[in-house]
Design a protein around this nucleic acid. Sequence first.
DNA 1: CCGGTCGTGTGGTCTGACCACAGACTCTAC
DNA 2: GTAGAGTCTGTGGTCAGACCACACGACCGG
Lengths: 229, 229
Amino acid sequence: MRAHEKVLAQVEADLAAGRWGLGERLPAERALAEELEVSRASVREAMRILEAMGIVRTAVGSGPSAGATVVDRPAAGLGAAVRLHLASGTLPVADVVATRVLLETWALAEIDAGPDEFSAAAEIVAAMETESDPNAFHALDAAFHLELVRLAGNGLVEAIMSGLRGAIEAYVAAAAARLPDWPGTAARLQHEHREILDAAVRGDGDRAARLVRAHIEGYSREAGLGVTR
Amino acid sequence: MRAHEKVLAQVEADLAAGRWGLGERLPAERALAEELEVSRASVREAMRILEAMGIVRTAVGSGPSAGATVVDRPAAGLGAAVRLHLASGTLPVADVVATRVLLETWALAEIDAGPDEFSAAAEIVAAMETESDPNAFHALDAAFHLELVRLAGNGLVEAIMSGLRGAIEAYVAAAAARLPDWPGTAARLQHEHREILDAAVRGDGDRAARLVRAHIEGYSREAGLGVTR
DNA sequence: CCGGTCGTGTGGTCTGACCACAGACTCTAC
DNA sequence: GTAGAGTCTGTGGTCAGACCACACGACCGG
């Protein structure tokens, strides 16, 4: 077992044992190195992995916010993995789009929430109404879709969705720049968002799921992101 | 931007540009460090991340197999991320089980394959018939479920499934050890596997999906892994 | 009471060195 | 000529030690 793997294994075991909780700080790199009898370089390699996986956040300086803090960003690791494999060309963008459809249709059919729980989603849609900048629009769009998935109550599905969105962000932005009529497209997307939200608020999850499938696949086709079928 | 992030960004860009393809080797760490004007330690930190994400595999020695080779193991990164967040306690096992059900039911309903394409799955089921060791049985079980998902044709869903399975492997093994009657449970699981496979081979994806849901949720409940509902 | 200064501990980075390893190469004995 | 042993070379793995920028907190002087 390599030195940095020893560190990873120990940190994972300590996490599982509850030695450190969310928001708490790991020992300093130098202390951890001495404790585990490895060099600081090996500890740092393990830290880089934990950071990439969204387990810790590191910060320089002193005080409570400095050092390696345990955080909870599962989407970071999932998104990075998907993004890198997209870059390597071994994972088609179409598969990512298809997976998004799969997760979002499931989520919308699954949601069991009262009308007042959709307030955050409604606010996002309202904010999009007056947003003309494509990048800001896409950010709100991502927040809207993620919020709906969040309401389904599965943290892993939410994290995967968030990661997928982050992974294809560059592709979405590049595709949007190629569209001939962005204002028109934005208006249509907005109309579809409202329909999806309305169906979800009314409790008609099946209709919302059908609409979101058409919404995502339609835009992907229009923007040339590719859809599975 | 930190030094190792510079390396990551450059490698990702080079991957996207096709500078290195699957099976090819990255430059040596020392060469990469000089090329990017960072220290070898920073290059190594980036390599650790790429390795954890399943993008490269490193090996010591000389010759064609040594060095950092571009590989395609998306499940490695996804699985590690999920496993670590399970350890940190921020992600419930029940969410992982629910996501597995979601992905597998989708896959079984999606499969559009001829009967001969199920030969690999059939062989795995046959091998399980005579397997008495729980750990080996679970390994074959994982291979069976993964093979069915593979037939759905979405590489990302397959990778996520593989990663999820790897992430909860330790939980599954621990849960199996607590079962009062393992031979009986194994026989029942085997029966269910055959039913699922039969339905899939006949092209009745909906029935196969229903069966696999009952299969996974039933076992998870029995083994105390927790199910969403 | 306020504001600047300094100390201290943190991660970030670099240099240089040594090790184990595995393949490729060379030499030698037959 | 061939097969084997020995050596060379380049690879990642690891380490020790040093220096830097940074941010907070304690201290001190006004």
